[in-house]
Amino acid sequence: MGATPEEGAAESAAALDEVAESLVSLWSLAHNAPDVPVPATQLRVLFILEHGPVNVSNLAAEMGALVSSASRLCDRLEAAGLLLRDHGRDRREVTVRLSTDGQALLDRLKVRRRDDLARVLDTMSSPARAALIWGLAQFRDAAKADKGPGSAGESFSLPA
């Protein structure tokens, strides 16, 4: 007798959890390189800003942080030359955006991540690579559609 759909999903979740650790570890190698001038939390801000300018309140909401905490992160990133602040007409709303140096850092990280991933993918057969990409795309779509308790559907996005 076969496993029920729920048991199959639970087994798949356990397998994915194990595999995801390897993927995340490999993917994050570039972020932990000695020449990356900021920690992971600040990198997260930069990746959010890569999609376009955002006000500090919306940035805090996207991060699940207090506005004051997001503002302090922006202070550090601005001091490092990685983001710019734009004050609105009434000066109450502050919008932040990537600086040229911030975008250059993200571009450099993407190249490194893709090189690291390509090195591993190159050891896989072509059908295995195709199946992996198809499966991950299906997972992304399902995660975006998931609206259940504790779901990732509202804020989940695969980094670029």
Rank of each mutant, 00 (worst) to 15 (best):
A14S: 14
D101Q: 12
P53H: 05
A9L: 05
I133Y: 05
Q103R: 09
S68F: 04
R91L: 15
S68R: 15
P34I: 03
A70N: 01
D86K: 13
C74H: 01
G81W: 14
K147D: 12
V56S: 08
A152C: 07
A145L: 08
L49Y: 01
M63C: 10
A40T: 10
P5C: 10
A104N: 09
A152D: 00
S57Y: 15
L84P: 02
R89C: 13
L117D: 02
G148I: 02
S126N: 15
G135D: 09
S12F: 14
K147T: 13
G8C: 11
I48W: 02
R76M: 13
A118M: 08
A118D: 08
A3N: 04
A10W: 02
G135Q: 13
S68E: 11
L49T: 01
E21A: 05
N58S: 14
S126L: 09
A33M: 03
E62Y: 08
W27E: 05
A145N: 08
S12V: 09
D101C: 07
N58W: 14
E62I: 11
S125N: 00
Q103P: 02
S125A: 09
A65E: 12
D86A: 15
N32Q: 03
A131H: 11
F47Q: 06
W134R: 08
R114P: 00
L109C: 12
S151Q: 06
A137G: 12
S57C: 10
P37H: 06
T95P: 11
L49D: 04
W27F: 07
R89H: 15
H51E: 04
L83C: 10
L73M: 15
A137C: 14
D75W: 00
H87E: 15
L136K: 01
A33F: 01
A118W: 04
L59C: 14
S126H: 10
E7Q: 15
P34N: 12
A13C: 01
R89M: 06
A30H: 03
W134V: 01
A152M: 02
K147F: 10
E50C: 08
D141T: 14
I133H: 06
E18G: 10
A137R: 07
D86R: 15
V19R: 09
A130D: 12
S71T: 13
D116P: 03
L98T: 06
A130G: 10
V111Y: 08
M124A: 12
E50H: 11
A131Y: 02
E11C: 05
L98H: 03
G148D: 04
L121N: 07
A118P: 04
E6V: 04
R92Q: 11
L106Q: 06
D116H: 06
E50A: 12
A152V: 02
P159E: 05
T100R: 05
L66W: 07
G153D: 01
W27S: 12
D107E: 07
M63L: 15
V24E: 10
V67P: 07
A33L: 03
A130L: 13
V38G: 06
A40K: 14
R44Y: 10
R140N: 13
A20W: 07
V36E: 00
